[in-house]
Nucleic acid binder design. Structure first.
Lengths: 264, 264
DNA sequence: TGTACATCAGTGAACGCGCGTTCACTGATGTAC
DNA sequence: TGTACATCAGTGAACGCGCGTTCACTGATGTAC
């Protein structure tokens, strides 16, 4: 009855998963640069060459970890956002922001692998781009929903979409295409202003997370939780959400993170 | 007459510089993980053990490169900002932002070394913290100046500094100390709101730069120059500068970058 | 000005290590008739 | 149900490499008297 998935394929999938699980454990412990096929094989009680039945190279294993990482943070964000009241747009944004940070703090090396530079000369292949946008898709949806509901004010600043008095050096024209693509892929039916502002908020969120994770806040911010809450609230304004209306959302600790299914 | 700097010390300093110059070249080409003492020694026509007369370990050499990196981006930011009219606060902010981005794009691996994760298990030692805040100091000064001149409006959003109606879960209290430290170190005499908002803008700036550099904008933003201009303008609002008043500053290409003194 | 001594930059060999990847092989699992 | 064959996961040895770091040494440069 199983048409072309004999037991072999199931076993193969299982072992592939074991390999990535152990590799992820090594990644968490030593970082991407310290990830060694031979060490992974050792932990599996296998000979190192056996791994080549599953991954053609070290880079391919790294790519699998990158995809898993994007999926993991994407899933964490999805779960946290799904738990919010649909019409609480600020709450949804804060849930997304908190979930991303919480995941990053729990998986710093995985975070560094996907949102930092991935080591010398590593070029992310095409199969990463789907999973890469999973978290962003959740964010885009909430922006679209807020837009549709009329909950958005004008995004905090940014030059007027068209026809301000001669502001235009590089100008909105160049960005109109990019905004259109954002609408097509990830946040349907939002005006240019909102789309571009939202993207800035998104990048800014990861700036906050990276600063915290990579030590830029050492000796600067002591209460990083409180600061993050406040900053995330501030960023809401960049896409026209009423900023600083924080307290609505789930408090940070409660955020469902959705990594329970993970082995590590 | 030279009391304790005989010719020996001068030569020593010179060779130390040669080592870091070549190491920086290797860093630029291969990234931090690919930096090898032996390879550096080879380029110097030295035997690898000779480097240990100058650096006690590979990590110490890396630390020197980190310090140099912070100084280089700091210097670039200083030079760009110094070229602005003192009372053009938005222009000063944009100059700072552009200089940081320009430097990062020109030195991606150095940027990754200092603002990304520095490889497995590397812990930045104390001597990096001075240089680390050099660029931030320029930014802080302009915020302070803008505040002193009365040019700042209320920072875009963020909960009111005190006494909004019961907003307070983690609340401003926890952050008051951090804001005070910011005043002491880097932006004297600005209110909590402004200090915290400015810090958010600062982190956000590096979020934008990292996203661009590490490929998160691939297939998303095509005109990265135009987008950065716009986003930087938007961020100005986070510390109360009139946002979107862009065109004032120097256009991106003109920004003095201040790396001319570099060998590489 | 000249000699005796200390400093210390650079050498060369070695230690001990781990790595990614290839390749011919064995032997178990599954398939076709 | 049973035999002949193909697939393919895992083995074990090897190739070729580069790395960080230590250590006893040589010989030039500088210092003290």
């Amino acid at each position: 009855m199983p048409p072309r998935t004999p037991a072999r394929e199931r076993v193969r999938a299982e072992i592939t998963r074991e390999i990535t699980d152990i590799a992820r454990r090594h990644l968490a412990a030593d970082g991407a640069a310290g990830l060694s096929l031979r060490a992974v094989a050792r932990d599996l009680d296998m000979v190192s060459s056996a791994l080549y039945r599953y991954f053609a190279s070290r880079d391919e294993l790294l790519t699998a970890l990158i995809i898993d990482g994007y999926n993991a943070i994407g899933q964490a964000v999805e779960a946290a956002e799904a738990a919010c009241r649909r019409d609480d747009y600020v709450g949804r944004w804060l849930a997304v922001a908190r979930a991303a940070r919480t995941w990053a703090l729990a998986h710093p090396h995985e975070y560094a692998l996907i949102y930092g530079s991935s080591g010398p000369g590593y070029q992310a292949p095409a199969d990463t781009i789907g999973p890469a946008s999973r978290a962003a898709a959740v964010f885009g949806r909430l922006v679209s929903d807020a837009q549709a509901s009329g909950a958005l004010g004008p995004p905090a600043s940014g030059p007027p979409a068209s026809g301000g008095p001669a502001s235009g050096a590089p100008g909105p024209a160049a960005l109109a295409g990019d905004a259109a693509r954002l609408r097509e892929t990830v946040m349907p039916a939002v005006p240019d202003d909102v789309a571009l502002g939202a993207l800035t908020a998104w990048a800014a969120l990861f700036g906050l997370i990276s600063f915290e994770l990579f030590g830029q806040f050492t000796n600067v911010i002591t209460d990083t939780d409180a600061y993050f809450e406040r900053a995330a609230g501030t960023l809401a304004g960049l896409m026209g959400l009423p900023a600083g209306a924080a307290a609505a959302g789930t408090p940070a600790g409660t955020t469902p993170v959705g990594t329970a299914a993970r082995t590590a």
